[in-house]
Simulated scan of single mutants.
Amino acid sequence: MPSEAYDAWRRSAAARVGGPGRVLAWARAEDGFVVGGPAALSFGGGDPTGGGDDWQHVGWHEIEHGGWNAESRALSWTLYGGRRGRVGLAEPGRLPELFRERVAASIAVERFVAIRGERGVTVTARRDLGGDGTLTWHSSLTRGLSWSTEGVAEEAARVSSELQSEYGSSSPGW
């Protein structure tokens, strides 16, 4: 990674809780760089003279799902709450593998509960890999269900409450 881009990333990442950590993997993106660190995926650096202001950081624990698409040469993800992200990688290197590993490492607890046939809710506790170990709880629905479907919200709340009493609670993220 060019030293100007590395320095800009470090300046930007230093503002995050836990600091920048170290670079586990990096790649050239369509417009800048992508850095995988212990606690976050960072992307930007297209303007190394910008003082690091163009970098964005996403905690691994914030990513609900995503992955590498070799055909489009893009790493994409969806955050809890529905916001999406995508970066095209000119040379992916180890980043796709690191992406899978770090997202999985942030999952402390995950349980799927069927509600209607194979449709149901997945309750997940995620741990910020750069934080104090606090769990954040989320509930996600499979396709074909909505939170307004009768009994869905109640079942998700029941399962989440049961798991939180067993594993510890934090802020619910649904």
Rank of each mutant, 00 (worst) to 15 (best):
G32N: 06
L95D: 01
V121F: 03
V123S: 07
L89T: 00
S148A: 15
Q164R: 15
F99G: 02
A27H: 00
G67K: 07
F43N: 06
R119Y: 09
G82N: 08
L163A: 05
P96W: 00
A90F: 05
A29Q: 02
D132I: 07
T49Q: 13
G151A: 07
L129D: 06
H65G: 10
T78D: 11
L98Q: 03
S169R: 14
A29H: 03
S169Y: 09
Y80D: 06
F112M: 07
E71V: 12
A108P: 02
H65M: 05
G59T: 10
L41C: 02
F43E: 07
G81F: 00
L95C: 04
I115V: 15
R143H: 11
R102Q: 14
G67V: 02
H138S: 11
V113P: 03
S72E: 11
R83S: 14
G67L: 03
S72R: 14
G131V: 02
W68M: 05
E30L: 11
R127G: 04
E162R: 12
T124L: 07
W77F: 06
L135E: 04
V35W: 02
T136R: 15
V34S: 01
E97M: 09
R119Q: 15
R84H: 12
A70E: 13
L141M: 09
T122E: 12
D47V: 09
R84A: 13
Q56H: 13
W60E: 00
S140K: 10
